[in-house]
Design a protein around this nucleic acid. Sequence first.
DNA 1: CCATACCCTTGATGTAGGTTAAGAAATTGG
DNA 2: CCAATTTCTTAACCTACATCAAGGGTATGG
Lengths: 192, 192
Amino acid sequence: MTIPDHKLIYYIQRWVELNEAEESLILDAFEPIAVKKKKDLLVPGDVCRYVYFIASGAVRSYHVDEKGVEHIFQLSLENSWISDLESFFSQKPSNYYIESIEPSTLLRISYERLETLYAEVPKLERYFRILFQRAYLNALQRLNSTMWDTAEERYNDMIKENCSILQRVPQTYIASYLGITPESLSRIRKKK
Amino acid sequence: MTIPDHKLIYYIQRWVELNEAEESLILDAFEPIAVKKKKDLLVPGDVCRYVYFIASGAVRSYHVDEKGVEHIFQLSLENSWISDLESFFSQKPSNYYIESIEPSTLLRISYERLETLYAEVPKLERYFRILFQRAYLNALQRLNSTMWDTAEERYNDMIKENCSILQRVPQTYIASYLGITPESLSRIRKKK
DNA sequence: CCATACCCTTGATGTAGGTTAAGAAATTGG
DNA sequence: CCAATTTCTTAACCTACATCAAGGGTATGG
């Protein structure tokens, strides 16, 4: 068992208990891959075939609008998940890019394999139920603050909660994730 | 079995198959209640004890900020779910109101009862996994359009997707749900 | 190790939507 | 069925953030 494998099991065990048999079923189902910086894991038009667990590194998902502007959806560091779930679960073409922003090690599982894995390890339904529940609440909070807080408040919240990401990715990415322009973020930062 | 009970099972069966035994276990676990218009199901400071399935009627969840302004989170019609999941799952005090906006019939289940029900009917983990997955994707789309579309575009999208709600609740609620003031919504509507 | 691309900053100007205020219209309940 | 309350509209003015533009700094890969 390699280090990234350990981490996946560790993070699943935070929410559901697994016996040894279940652990190996899970590990067998995931395929480890290593990617360099700036590698596309998904491009628009392709079906999103995998859900990725980030064992190390950083990955973003974004979409490019008609004017060519990038809108960042997710900025994910190690020990979290990333995918385009809409495309993944519908198995229809995606509108998004998923791209590594640092050299990263990932564990991926395909749609078909995940369905069979649910049958082999029913507890995983519980794990993903809890995971989506938390992701949903998180998205609602982000929605709430986007609707009702100023850009400055949102940036300050991000500083509080998420220090390391600010050091690791360009400010343009942070601005896009917050829903503002790089210029505005620069002005907000100057105020301090 | 009453009509509202039927509907709950019907909507669960859209995603997972249930046998008769499982159906009755589920129906036994949910408690039907009827509420008038404007009844508070949850107020800030209280722990959210229930998840509600709306068999008929309409319910909203909202929070009131320091200035006394209401921010509507969810506007839910019959055949959908409503709760403050953050409070429900953490069993900590809520910051939200949940209030009926029409006379409604609801099926509710408590936190403890849901946990035992998961043990009795493991398939429900799958159902709620899928439910949260969809809710999460929905929240992300709402986030996306709040960040990048104009208020007018968001209102037009709502007209397309959700005709009936516009007829059934005051415009102030729609405005708040869209993240704008009633005045702005009024101006948008005048344009047509 | 240099050139190119990318990234950050700063300034001038534009605009969607907020705020305040007030009256008209529609609901509601006693 | 009417008074009270809530909802909707309109108008004048304001503000947070966007857009456009241009210059300087700093990675980075050939």
